[in-house]
Design a protein around this nucleic acid. Structure first.
Lengths: 207, 207
DNA sequence: AGGGGGTATATAGGACCGATATAGGTCTTG
DNA sequence: CAAGACCTATATCGGTCCTATATACCCCCT
């Protein structure tokens, strides 16, 4: 499902400019489960217009750049409802936070605490924002919002209950840079066999 | 944080081939919060080698393509621990499922039920996999895994308790294609003022 | 014997993001 | 009241990354 389809869906909720669509992704209805940038929205709208799925009428306001307001056409509505029937991509979650936390033993407790505080307030803010009043975009909007609120609240709860564990790891001795260096750092060791052995163990550990 | 840094982190956990790194993202330690494809991993390893952050020794097995095993250098370790101190990108969640659910009123109850069943078993499988035995990559690996398990379990609980709401929306009358079409479908209406008015209302509704 | 799936590397093409440019408007605060 | 910060609004370039594909050989099952 590419940005073109996403824009089509956005316009199904009401006519809008590229700027307004972008805001739906940044602040609005879509903000907690989708992203799209100007760099993809504007080209998408151009192509949708070429394909006859949307129309565009410019509204010029004095001394301002034209406002291009896009509307879905009947053809666009059809195309969109058809797109909704196609198989969906899996949900994706990307967290550099968790990646860094995985290496807590290389960090200072202060760094770990700082990152968790940050993440915690992010989740709190989102849980807050999504449990807000039921201003509605579609009948299902409440269902979607509450879902988000619940998940973010679960994150908050987990972090508050378990943060001491990672913080302890970061604080533990023999972690970090001052720990004694291993022998094989600068170049592959002279003994490939030994190296391979160690590698096997490490891989077993990882999986 | 680009794929180069991610690969560096992966190699910090033990020497590996490009193929093995890819598996860490697909099945392994990173799988539930990161993604990276061959198309980015192989070029990343090449560049890391050029920059002296990793080394590569080929292990040729009879009648098989060379296996290129990569190892972090001291320089690579330093670069990685420094990368861990830089500001992190926000967590990202992308869900076409939620996007489609937002338009439940355009779908049949069967479609909605099918999608929820699918999503439910995805979450269940992940919750299961992440609450599994504590096979460890780093000291913090348990913390990260449990976090994932908790969040996926929260999703399962929410979907099971609330699925009837969206399913009811999809089943409700006056939804979908057979509903009477609005007047303004094919082209922008003849009255721009009226159009603008309606647009304002719709935008108010969305926010 | 043949197909399916696993190991393993590599690249071309396209989708998308991040940053930047432009340009005027409104709000804030010293 | 004026300077600076932020908002509206469109647009594009460079670079990163994913998808799909190609290659090549193995093992296992039927």
């Amino acid at each position: 499902m590419d940005v073109r389809t996403l824009c089509l869906g956005a316009l199904t909720l009401g006519d809008a400019t590229g700027y307004e669509i972008r805001k739906m992704f940044e602040d609005g209805v879509f903000s907690h489960f989708l992203e799209a940038s100007y760099g993809s929205i504007y080209p998408a709208l151009t192509r949708l217009t070429e394909e006859g799925l949307v129309t565009c009428h410019s509204e010029q306001q004095e001394k301002r750049p034209d406002k291009k307001i896009y509307s879905v056409t009947a053809k666009g509505r059809t195309a969109f409802t058809e797109a909704l029937l196609e198989p969906l991509a899996e949900d994706k979650f990307r967290s550099e936070f968790l990646f860094v936390m995985l290496f807590a033993h290389l960090l200072t407790p202060e760094r770990v605490k700082g990152l968790i505080d940050e993440k915690l307030s992010e989740h709190k803010e989102l849980a807050e924002r999504l449990s807000g009043p039921a201003d509605i975009g579609t009948p299902a909007a409440d269902f979607i919002k509450d879902f988000g609120a619940v998940v973010h609240q679960a994150s908050v709860d987990y972090l508050e209950k378990n943060r001491h564990k990672v913080e302890a790891i970061a604080g533990a001795p023999s972690s970090r840079a001052h720990a004694p260096q291993q022998d094989e750092d600068a170049a592959p060791s002279a003994s490939p066999d030994k190296n391979k052995d160690r590698r096997q163990k490490e891989l077993a550990r990882i999986r």
